[in-house]
């Protein structure tokens, strides 16, 4: 099956692909480099930057001065919390749609998707006011609720496409074996769907971690996750390249790693199963 390729051609493609890949990746590489430089060195010319001494001082100061870990922790709580709650609501729903499909299952799925297409700015005002009146502004709990809701359609959809691939006969076998619905879900469906559930979990943590509309608009100092915290570096007075780099590196590293692990399943989740 594999087509025969000359080594010369392969070499040319290799050089080209690596050049493009490195160019695209360069900004990320650059902030990682800058994060290990002193504030004074970080704004020098590229050659001077590369030649200057390496240091951990930015990481140390970011932590000390800005309570970095509180925001990091906010991000963890918000993205993990919204994803887990989302899964808890979505697993039963996806089970129902995948294994007991009815005439309206397809419509329900499409309708769920359509809620995802609602531009957030269209409901910004009411959500803001509701949050203000309920005292949910700048709380992690409030953000968990919003992020759960905006990502719920994606979770349901991804799980649905994974569940669809599990033969219904196995669940029927469990029913014949005397499993109650609860046992069927806990002992049979969930363990079988672990890969699918894991990639759904991963994708959703990524999406929630990087969500930057609601997090910016609904939080201030207290519950701000990293997206909002990093935005506070945008004021011109605070041009601290090295510290910004250190904060950014720590903010994106976990997600970058998760993303690399889940790249295979990502496509399906991001396209609602339209491309596999």
């Amino acid at each position: 099956m594999a087509r025969r390729v000359t080594n010369r051609r392969k070499a040319v493609v290799t050089v080209l692909a690596w050049l493009v890949g490195l160019a695209i990746f360069f900004p990320i590489l650059w902030i990682v480099i800058l994060s290990f430089k002193s504030e004074g060195d970080a704004i020098k010319t590229p050659f001077e930057v590369l030649g200057s001494a390496w240091t951990f001082e930015s990481y140390a100061t970011v932590q000390e001065r800005s309570n970095y870990f509180r925001h990091f922790w906010n991000s963890v709580v918000i993205s993990l919390g919204s994803t887990l709650i989302g899964l808890l609501i979505a697993i039963p729903a996806a089970w129902a749609m995948a294994f007991v499909p009815g005439k309206r299952t397809k419509d329900v799925l499409m309708w769920m998707l359509s809620t995802k297409m609602l531009p957030p700015v269209g409901v910004l005002v009411p959500i803001y006011l509701i949050f203000r009146n309920l005292g949910l502004l700048d709380t992690r709990f409030g953000l968990v609720i919003v992020l759960t809701l905006i990502n719920l359609p994606i979770i349901v959809w991804m799980l649905y496409t994974y569940f669809k691939e599990i033969p219904g006969e196995i669940l029927e076998a469990a029913r014949m074996d005397g499993a109650s619905l609860k046992n069927e879900l806990i002992h049979v469906l969930t363990p079988m769907a672990v890969p699918g559930i894991a990639s759904t979990l991963l994708l959703n943590i990524i999406l929630a971690w990087n969500e930057a509309f609601w997090t910016l608009n609904l939080t201030a100092a207290k519950a701000a996750p990293l997206t909002a915290f990093i935005a506070s570096y945008s004021s011109p007075e605070g041009l601290f390249y090295a510290k910004l780099s250190a904060a950014s590196t720590m903010a994106i590293a976990p997600i970058l790693i998760m993303g690399w692990f889940s790249q295979k399943q990502l496509v399906r989740g991001l396209t609602f199963g339209a491309v596999k």
Binding site: E169, I170, A173
Partner: peptide, 17 residues
């Protein structure tokens, strides 16, 4: 099904993988 006291063997075996 669980209450009927019957056991079923499926075409696809339907073993728990």
């Amino acid at each position: 099904p669980a209450k009927r006291g019957l056991a079923m063997v499926f075409q696809s075996y339907a073993l728990y993988p």
